[in-house]
Design a protein around this nucleic acid. Structure first.
Lengths: 231, 231
DNA sequence: CGCCATCTTGAGGTCTATCAATTTCAGTGG
DNA sequence: CCACTGAAATTGATAGACCTCAAGATGGCG
């Protein structure tokens, strides 16, 4: 209990919080659990009604299509709330999967109602978080809809760098090419080919869960990346 | 003033509203204005801080890319609030355009704060609206990322039918092929070709702002459409 | 009737998917 | 320490989807 929770830290970035508000948020992390890499935190099609706050590790939200294809919808980092997307639906639409070892805390949806009742300010921050998720989805639509594979990948890697607040040109990215492919709507084979191409052009190297950006300006120019949507 | 506003009607679908809440919402429609088809309600890059409630007509949110390409992010119908996506950003990211003649009412962002302060229940409904928008974006990602053009178009048309609550197999769709192309991430030419193909297969006819669905089951089967995300 | 935007059609080329065969690599057990 | 194993990544060849360019048809509207 000595260390402040991830969620509280995240929310403090938006506004100062009263003691009561901190308490409300801390309740979201009473029941922290560990999940091994690859495990499913929440399946699609279940009765909706619970979220997870992500303490540490990487996770993602995916949708399975009837023909076996998969689309990765979100990639979650520590401090994010997972499952907001399914509020208001009777059944969950998406699956939450741990990409690495994960510490996460499930909490019931009605907690959120309580928060809305008791703190307009927290409600507003939750709203902003959803807006931010919205912005990420929007940018992904543009990426998938209007950019060829090389630009898509470049854009994706830059987004990750910014979201991780990675100052170094080298950072961890525990995603295999399968996950990247399903996030960007291209095939795994083509991810491999396109990454090789970016490497040959001296822009970026990706391998064994690490990214090394060799030419940041080049990547930005190629992808048309503008971090405004992540502000 | 005799006719109830679109926004209030939309919100009533989520919960009963007190007189005070109705009043708060009605304030969002004090300043109704008319816009001709094709006009820009709000440009990208402006200082953020205002929304629109859409009274009647069709509008869309778009993003322009540096190379001149365009992505349609949202298509708005009467009763929707436009611009939620840009809350919390210093400058707007998207452009709002009228697709038909439009009646809309701009209102300042701080109204929303006031609503959050004074009615947790309305705050919750706004939250749900954003969740719903989120679900639409998600579905669009899947559509664009993982389905070929024919399925994409079929899915898009079915989504429109459901969103319009169209009971008839025939309904208005005032979108030209350019808008559809930019919404689905394919070229205008290919939209034309694919629509012809769907017509030849006896599934659906699209022309002069009207859609006629000849084989609903066939379209559903082709696209894998599941209306759960629109519930 | 003529004009303009929208839509259609054709031909050729590019990008990406798919299938299949290797190679690499981290982890495991001998 | 090394061989074995299975997952992940690479590579080649081929096919198909979609794009672009360009010309022509259609249809609403003054």
């Amino acid at each position: 209990m000595s260390r402040e929770s991830c969620i509280v830290a995240q929310f403090r970035r938006h506004a100062d919080l009263s003691d009561q508000e901190v308490e409300l948020l801390t309740a979201l992390e009473k029941d922290v659990r560990d999940f091994p890499a690859g495990s499913v935190l929440s399946e699609a099609g279940m009765e909706a009604g619970s979220f997870f706050s992500l303490h540490s590790g990487w996770a993602c939200a995916t949708r399975l299509l009837s023909d076996g294809q998969r689309q990765v919808l979100d990639i979650f980092l520590a401090g994010q709330v997972m499952g907001l997307r399914d509020i208001g639906f009777s059944h969950t639409q998406t699956e939450l999967t741990a990409l690495t070892e994960v510490r996460a805390c499930p909490f019931p949806a009605k907690y959120l109602d309580e928060i809305f009742e008791r703190s307009p300010r927290l409600a507003r921050i939750f709203f902003l978080k959803l807006v931010r998720e919205n912005a990420l989805l929007t940018e992904r639509i543009i990426n998938i809809g209007r950019r060829p594979a090389a630009q898509r990948l470049a854009h994706f890697l830059l987004e990750m760098k910014v979201r991780l607040h990675a100052a170094d040109p080298e950072f961890e990215l525990p995603l295999n090419q399968n996950v990247i492919a399903d996030a960007l709507g291209i095939s795994t084979v083509h991810v491999s080919r396109t990454l090789s191409q970016l490497k040959e052009e001296g822009l970026v190297r990706v391998g064994q869960n690490r990214v090394t950006i060799d030419d940041l300006d080049g990547l930005v120019a190629l992808s048309g990346f503008d971090p405004a949507y992540l502000e």
